[in-house]
Nucleic acid binder design. Structure first.
Length: 390
RNA sequence: GGGUAGGUACCGAAGCGGUCAAACGGGGUGGACUGUAAAUCCACUGGCUUAGCCUUCACAGGUUCGAAUCCUGUCCUGCCCA
């Protein structure tokens, strides 16, 4: 059987497809396939890491298939144990719903809004009674669940695995049954969960879904996977400036990976690393904002960080209230008012003593000094934060 | 339920009556250098009205001039047994 014309395109960037034969068979059906992607709204932001699978989902949409985005409002309360060495904190339903709302909005930066189907899995889990839960559980064995790498790991290290955690793969699998998924997308860490879906579908007499896993995007630190809780992420709804800046902070070693996974093209060997990084940053920024905004972000970045010209940079204005403020108070207030960052006075003091706080390019290292209120100028707070005063 | 080993700062891990805001390592932050890269060096890494003071070593009591360190109880976790 010759490959389906879309096969090569759709498999691009995939780490693994299980199974290849099923994949071709599904495409050969000639009807729009139900392609499932589950996301758990455990945090309010979707980031570049999520964008990998979402982009793949979009590609399916563009080829006429049906995108089913499952918002795991129910599963999010359990927390996916994937890749975790410790139990996740559980969220309340309200937190989850709030997150889900902003998730959808951000997901539509990638997905085609018109043809996407959004489903909350609370729809079927919420009404399940205990008997049904037991029945569902009887379909899998503990051994099956425990072969999972992260469970194994925790067993070996003597770390606790709570009984509810092993429910997660079962629930995710059940989602596949409920939406009759033809294909499920996910990161490589989802492989196990997706395979459980296949098992459950077979049990239910459904055709089994194809498992397509995408590589995991490394975080800005280049070491761990991109995730909200590790703080090494770029959210899709960040400002162009922040987005550009964050990407500029990745290491050269990480760049080829980002090129391949986010731009789907190889990094040219002769490009200057910094220039290549600016191109990368600009293209990603343009993708989630716009071309002009990305260009502006680049210019801003260059004046501010390359030329270190804070005078010309676009900075929030900060007007200290009251009189006779010492430096520490000014710094704390500036962080709070202009950036919504809470710094303790001790932290501010450390920054000052460390030489981070500068007034017109001159370090102010005496925390107790009174601040020269009358003058206007730029107060640099730390590497990435500065305010204009006056 | 029984036995046993434990619960120390973001993480790992020392400390086992005073010299402990707590060694050391990792991580993080800031500075120098620079390309907001890497490498390297330095500093910081509980709070405050900072030559000092206050709150921390699972929780609650107790012993003591003095406790992370000793005692009692409670909660939690691993492992073994039932």
């Amino acid at each position: 059987m010759p490959d389906h014309p879309d096969a090569a395109f759709l498999r691009q960037g995939c780490e693994k497809i299980l199974s290849e034969d099923d994949f071709h068979a599904k495409l050969a059906l000639g009807r729009p396939l139900r392609v499932k992607l589950g996301v758990d709204p455990t945090a309010p932001d979707i980031h570049l890491g999520h964008s990998i699978s979402l982009t793949k989902l979009r590609e399916f949409q563009d080829r006429g298939h049906e995108a089913i985005l499952i918002i795991g409002d129910f599963t999010a309360m359990i927390g996916d144990p994937s890749g975790r060495s410790v139990t996740r904190p559980q969220l309340t339903h309200d937190q989850v719903l709030a997150n889900a709302k902003s998730y959808q909005e951000q997901a539509f930066k990638i997905l085609n809004r018109e043809s996407a189907r959004i489903v909350f899995n609370g729809e079927w889990f919420e009404s399940m009674c205990f008997e049904e839960v037991i029945k569902l559980n009887s379909r899998v064995t503990l051994q099956q669940m425990l072969v999972r790498e992260d469970f194994r790991d925790r067993m070996d290290k003597g770390q606790p695995i709570r009984a509810h955690e092993i429910q997660y793969p079962i629930m995710q699998g059940w989602d596949s049954v409920m939406v009759k998924a033809d294909i499920e997308l996910g990161g490589t860490d989802q492989l196990f969960n997706i395979m459980v879906g296949r098992d459950l579908q077979r049990e239910e007499g459904q055709p089994q879904q194809v498992c397509m896993v995408m590589p995991i995007l490394a975080g800005l630190d280049g070491k761990k996977k991109m995730s909200k809780s590790l703080g090494n992420y770029v959210a899709l709804n960040e400002s162009p400036g922040e987005m550009f800046g964050k990407i500029m902070s990745i290491s050269d070693e990480l760049m080829p990976t980002y090129y391949e996974m986010l731009l789907r093209e190889p990094l040219s060997a002769e490009a200057h690393p910094m220039e290549a990084k600016k191109v990368l940053a600009a293209r990603i920024t343009a993708r989630f904002h716009s071309q002009p905004e990305a260009a502006t972000a680049r210019e801003e970045f260059e004046t501010r960080f390359s030329r270190k010209d804070l005078e010309q940079a676009e900075l929030p204005t900060f007007q200290p209230q009251g009189t006779a403020w010492d430096l520490v108070s000014i710094v704390v207030e500036a962080f709070g008012q202009s950036f919504q960052i809470t710094k303790s006075r001790s932290e501010a003091r450390r920054l000052i003593e460390g030489g981070s706080v500068q007034w017109g390019g001159v370090k102010l290292s005496a925390p107790k000094e009174c601040f020269p209120q009358a003058e206007a100028g730029v107060l640099k707070l730390d590497k990435t934060h500065a305010v204009r005063i006056g």
